[in-house]
Amino acid sequence: MKSPLHQDVYKQICDFMGEDLDAPACKEVAEHLENCPNCKVVLDTVRKTVTICRENEKKEAIPPDVKNRLYKVLKL
């Protein structure tokens, strides 16, 4: 099986990050990552990026005044 280029690895990042791990392209990416530390760094740091962003975007409770205004506008 032909090994994918670095560019192809970047293009498969979404599939590789859990969308479609069984896709043939993902299997090729997995093989490529075993032999390409630089691409592995990109993937690991993208994963970490998503984790940090998720932590940053924690859910907020609706402020009581916002909730009151909503119900008033909706006449509920």
Binding site: K11, N38, E55
Partner: peptide, 22 residues
């Protein structure tokens, strides 16, 4: 862009650095 800038460079791995948190 579709790929990292300067793909020819060696990327720095900060994925395990605990100081990178919010």
């Amino acid at each position: 862009p579709d790929s990292p800038r300067h793909p020819e460079e060696k990327f720095v791995d900060w994925s395990q650095d605990p100081s990178l948190n919010i």
